[in-house]
Every structure is written in structure tokens, then in C-alpha cells.
Nucleic acid binder design. Structure first.
Length: 598
RNA sequence: CGGGGUGUAGCUCAGCUUGGUUUAGAGCGCGUGCCUUGGGAGCACGAGGUCCGCGGUUCAAAUCCGCGCACCCCGACCA
């Protein structure tokens, strides 16, 4: 492509509404253009990158025997009512009525649709296992879209669904998909960690997330620095510490004389830390939950930690919610000062403590009296019914497998795989006949990749303030020809000739044939993120051209691979050997990608 | 859905506090000409506006007031 014919309009300044690196760079370099909050146009450059990722995913899906199809984005509510997700996913569904008044929605994911298809056609164990996938636009009315392509209301997802007669067969496919995903991210040179994850609204028991470590993401995971165990902080288990507990209440007069302190206007832990001049870790937070049957649970957690409600629900084996103000009023509990010592209506509350409380001394805790706290208490002075792993894992928590230390990483979710079981097949009637003529529900798995999000992920992984850095298999063009002075006849002719040669050899090339000053062209080359530039300037008189690498390109390659081509960085090359040199480099870097002609 | 912020040229922004010398501005970008060509050059001329929308106050509103809309950020939520 010639720059003068291309749809590329770069910006010098960071757009006002962008804060994440990828959002800013993709906008400045003319890859995307915002239509509305969380809705983007993929401009020609952006679509090229998207297509490359798309194609790699298709190739890896095909390798594990998955068949591609295309489902509708426009759904009627009937299947969604059968799984009840018409209600449970209500907060993200785009719902509306058609002209006849039928309830419709835009598909946020396709478990319902695919299960319906399979239920219709597949009747026998002989047709299983089966892997079907699509790459398609999804719609989710996110409460808060953010970060450009990172969280959109319309986005492109690859969704794969698998169907099995047995759990063993599901496990096998799950592992195959795991490997395929690893291949996809490796081919894109995207570094990733696979972490155990929570399955959320999709459902199922086992799931893993593929994570890119970056501050621009929305998730966090922990990694054990000793054994390497990784998990989303939503589910990461923490080791049970060694501790002894037996309740030994202090006499009321001793409590009031030695331990009760006046703490006016101190509503948060931060206020108290200041007021009492103590460490956050001396505090115990007491949070009141209740279930649907009005049973109350007071949950204790160390001041610097947060309660993990997913763990709490699992621990109690029921769903609980934060208690309301009226619950406090009715039972004479004091909001902000509730605690496990001298609690009114004690018999109505089960008190459970997170492990983080188990070895505390000098405890500061709500005194069940407005504006008062108890200080200098020991664990044995607290009235606790049970202990459990109830907090969100943080730095230095102990690994539940090996007691090593956890470290927390900020991350962006690239893909997520689930073992679904029979949730959808039962709800939608997807049954098969087995060898013994018994009707059984089909066992399912589902597997997603945020395809449009990957575009942002690659930018986040390697780019710097004024330069995108595409990886070799994601870049829209491999080579940028930069002609210093397009009015110079020799420079022009040599550039044109080289451009034609590269194109004829199926090497994707962008030729900057603009009548701009050299500085403008260098800046745009770096901003666009193309890995290599061939500079044709005055030295062409001596039949020499110059080859340069994108400033961060070395980061996208394993050191040993980069070592092989590093000699060419900033090097002068005989013009007549340009094609040969480029082909040599490309062959080293190329991982079975078919080049597309311009 | 709670909290905060922004809305003026294609982009980044000034002007608003204290209404009227602003027939609405700057830089960048865009067009034309000259000049220049190894890291965002220079000169000249030019095009480009619903000052987010509606309503109000006033002799007079980009500016003050009210309502609404859009977008961004933090939180909550989320495959």
C-alpha cells in the first residue's frame, strides 16, 4: 500500500478521552475510531490486525477438529427464558421488542443457541464428541465500558462449544483447547499466565483464564512464588494457619475500664488508623450478612483485607447478602460499630472469622456502642463460632498448596475456558442415546477468546508512549519503506522498484511516498508500529539503503531469536540485496503465516 | 447504579470567575503557492463553528440559572 492512497490519518496529540496506552495509540495511529461508549469502528489498519488474529485463531481451532459456523446475533427471548438467563443476565442484556411485539435481545454469548442447534441435530453417541465455534460480534450493555477495546459494549469474540458423552472425553477436549489457546497466544507473541478461575454467570465447575500481566487490565491473579500455583484472586485459596482458639470472655467491668475507647466521627478503618495511630492490621472489620431466610452471619476479617463473597457463599453453602439498615435497627445493632464482643441478640447471629484474624494480638474492634471501639483485645476474647478461608488473597498470603508466599499481579483476561457439565443441555433438551439405549444429557464445555480485545492486549504488551509495537504475526504491514525525499528522482525510482519487488514477493509493505519532511515520516513509522523500516535516502547514490527495527520490536521476540537478526538493526545494506535480506529475516521469524497481497 | 470530571474548528485547548473591543480565538492538522528534505521545518494566503441541546434571566449569553443529553475517570458489577 502506498501511504498517499491509504486511509491513515495520524494524530500528534493524545486524544482527551483516552487514558489507557492501547486506547490512545490505536486512536492516534488510526486503527480504531469511536462511535459511542464501548463501540468502535475498526478502520482499515485496525481491521487488518484483527483479521490476522482472526485467521490464527481459525487455524488453531481447525487443528483440534473444531468446525466453524455462524450463529445469529439477533435472538428471541424463548431460549433465554428456558435457561433463566433472560433474567439472571438482565444487567448486561440489550433487550427490545420487534414490530410484532416479540421480546428480542442481542446475543451476549451463545450457549443457548448452540445447545439448541445441537439438540435438534445430534441424537446419538455416534455423533459425539463435537466441537463447534464461531467468531462473531457480541453485545453486552456493560455498566461501564472502558479502555477502548478492552471492555466494549459491542466486541468480537471467538466462542467454541464442545459436546461429549462423558466427563473423560470433556477433559480430553478441555486439554486440547488449553493447548490450542497456548498456541494462539504464542503465535501472537503474547505472554500469558493460565490461572484457575471463577466461572461466574456462564456456570460450570472448572475454569481457567488466560491472562496478560498489565496495569490496563481489570482483573487480578495470584501466583505462588514457591510452587507456581496461579489463580484468580476471586477464588485463590489461602492456607489454614496454625492457631488455637478457645473462647475466654473478659468480665464486663474489665472490658469497659481497660478496653473501651471513645472514637467519635471515625467511620472507616482509615479514620481509625489515624485517630488511634495504629496499624491497619490491628483492626478487625465485622461485616453483617444475611441469607434469604433472615439468618445473620457476622464475618470478621483483618483490617487490611477484604471479604471474598464467592468464598463466603461456598463456605456457608448458600447465597448471602449484606444486611440492610433496618436489620440493624430491628435488632439493636449499631451500624459501623458492630462486633463479636457483647453483641445484642447474639443467638440470632453466627459469627465466623477469616483465617487472617486467627493470629492477631492487640485487636481493635467495634464495641457495639456508637462511637466506641474496644482496643488491646486478644483472639480468645472474641466470641467466634467458626473459622474459614473467607478473604480475597493478597500479597504475602500463604499458598494453600505449599505455604509459600503469594504475589498479586494486575491482569487482562485474554481467554477463558469452562467445563460446563449439563447445565445447558438439560435446560434446552440436548440429550443423546448411548450404546445401551439410554437417554442422557450431553456434557458440554465452552471456550472464549476476546478477539477484538487481543488487538489492545498486544499494544499493551509492548508499546511505548509514542510507538505501537506489533508482534510479527499481528502487524498490518511487515515492512515500511521510508523515502526521505520523494522529489529526488533516484530515490523515487529505487523506492518504487523496491516496493513493487516486495509486493510481488508477497511481503506486506507500506510505502511512505508522501511529500513530507523526514521527521514526520519517522514519527509516523514508529507510531504505526510496523516492525521494520527500509530508509531510502541520499545513500542510494552509493546503492545503499538502511534497515531499522521498531524501538521495542526486540521485546516481542525470545532473546535467542532476536539474536539471530540483531546484526541487521540499524545496518546499511546493498540495495540489490534488500529482498534477499528481508526474506532471510522473515523466514527466521515467520511461523506459517500466509502473506496477503496488497 | 453511587461519586467525580468534561463538552468551544478535524485534533489539543484558551476565553467563562466579573455578561458587552471576539463581526468567536490560538497551536496543530487541512487547501494553494514559494522554499525545504536523515527525526514532527519556514514564509504567505485561505477554507473550516448549532460555543452539546432545550428553556429561562437580561437591552445583551460561549459566559449567569434550570432541565436534559453525551463522553471520560473512580467505585460497584462483570465471560
Amino acid at each position: 500500500m502506498r501511504y498517499t492512497k491509504s486511509f491513515i490519518y495520524t494524530l500528534k496529540e493524545t486524544p482527551a478521552d483516552t487514558t489507557t496506552l492501547s486506547h490512545s495509540l490505536l486512536t492516534r495511529a488510526c486503527y480504531i475510531y469511536q462511535h459511542a461508549a464501548g463501540i468502535y469502528n475498526f478502520l482499515p489498519l485496525g481491521f487488518k490486525v484483527l483479521s490476522k488474529i482472526w485467521k490464527i485463531i481459525e487455524e488453531e481451532m481447525d487443528k483440534i477438529g473444531a468446525q466453524e459456523l455462524l450463529m445469529p446475533a439477533l435472538h428471541t427471548s424463548n431460549l433465554w427464558l428456558k435457561t433463566n438467563r433472560y433474567n439472571t443476565m438482565d444487567n448486561v442484556l440489550f433487550k427490545f421488542k420487534d414490530k410484532k411485539g416479540v421480546d428480542m435481545l442481542l446475543g451476549p454469548t451463545h450457549e443457548e443457541i448452540i445447545t439448541d442447534i445441537v439438540a435438534h441435530f445430534v441424537k446419538s453417541y455416534k455423533n459425539l464428541p463435537l466441537l463447534l465455534y464461531q467468531i462473531q460480534v457480541k453485545f453486552r450493555d456493560e455498566l461501564r465500558p472502558k479502555g477502548g477495546l478492552i471492555r466494549g459494549r459491542e466486541f468480537i469474540m471467538k466462542d467454541l462449544y464442545s459436546f461429549h458423552t462423558s466427563l473423560e472425553c470433556l477433559d480430553k477436549t478441555y486439554n486440547n483447547v488449553y493447548k490450542a489457546y497456548s498456541n494462539i497466544f504464542e503465535r501472537l507473541n503474547l505472554p500469558f499466565e493460565v490461572v484457575e478461575a471463577h466461572s461466574g454467570a456462564i456456570g460450570g465447575d472448572v475454569s481457567h483464564e488466560f491472562m496478560l500481566i498489565t496495569n490496563s487490565g481489570e482483573d487480578k491473579f495470584i501466583k505462588c512464588l514457591s510452587c507456581g500455583y496461579t489463580a484468580s484472586t476471586e477464588i485463590a485459596k489461602i492456607a489454614k494457619p496454625d492457631f488455637n482458639y478457645s473462647y475466654n470472655p473478659l468480665p464486663l467491668n474489665e472490658l469497659e475500664q481497660k478496653h473501651l475507647v471513645y472514637t467519635p466521627n471515625a467511620y472507616t478503618i482509615q479514620d481509625l488508623v489515624k485517630f488511634l495511630n495504629k496499624n491497619e492490621k490491628n483492626f478487625v472489620k465485622s461485616i453483617l450478612y444475611k441469607d434469604n431466610n433472615n439468618n445473620f452471619y457476622l464475618v470478621l476479617v483483618r483490617g487490611d483485607k477484604e471479604i471474598n463473597e464467592i468464598k463466603l457463599n461456598k463456605f456457608l453453602d448458600k447465597e448471602v447478602f449484606l444486611a440492610e439498615n433496618k436489620d440493624f435497627e430491628i435488632n439493636n445493632w449499631i451500624l459501623g460499630y458492630i462486633g463479636p464482643v457483647n453483641l445484642n441478640n447474639r443467638s440470632k447471629v453466627k459469627i465466623i472469622a477469616d483465617y487472617s484474624v486467627s493470629n492477631l494480638k492487640d485487636i481493635i474492634i467495634g464495641a457495639n456502642k456508637k462511637d466506641y471501639h474496644f482496643i488491646n483485645l486478644n483472639l480468645e476474647n472474641l466470641d467466634i463460632d467458626d473459622f474459614g478461608d473467607l478473604s480475597i488473597a493478597t500479597d504475602n498470603d500463604e499458598c494453600y498448596k505449599c505455604k509459600g508466599k503469594y504475589k498479586v499481579y494486575p491482569a487482562l483476561e485474554l481467554g477463558h475456558i469452562f467445563k460446563l457439565g449439563t447445565k445447558y443441555s438439560q435446560a434446552l433438551g440436548a440429550y443423546f442415546m448411548d450404546e445401551t439405549n439410554k437417554l442422557k444429557p450431553i456434557i458440554m464445555g465452552c471456550y472464549g477468546i476476546g478477539v477484538s480485545r487481543l488487538v489492545s492486549a498486544i499494544v499493551e504488551a509492548y508499546s511505548s508512549e509514542n510507538s505501537i509495537t506489533w508482534t510479527f504475526n499481528s502487524t498490518p504491514y511487515k515492512i515500511y519503506i521510508l523515502t526521505i525525499n520523494i522529489d529526488d528522482k533516484l530515490q523515487y525510482e529505487k523506492s518504487l522498484n523496491l516496493y513493487n519487488t516486495l509486493i510481488q514477493n508477497n511481503i506486506e509493505t507500506l510505502w511512505d511516498d508522501r511529500k513530507e519532511s523526514a521527521g514526520v515520516k519517522f514519527k509516523d513509522w514508529e507510531l504505526l508500529g510496523i516492525p521494520f523500516v527500509i530508509i531510502i535516502g541520499n545513500k542510494i547514490k552509493d546503492n545503499l539503503i538502511e534497515l531499522k527495527f521498531n524501538p521495542n520490536f526486540h521485546k516481542t521476540l525470545k532473546p535467542e531469536l532476536f539474536e539471530k537478526i540483531t546484526n541487521y538493526q540499524n545496518s546499511l545494506i546493498n540495495y540489490d540485496k534488500t529482498l534477499e535480506t528481508i526474506q532471510y529475516i522473515i523466514n527466521l521469524l515467520n511461523i506459517n503465516i500466509n502473506f496477503i497481497k496488497n
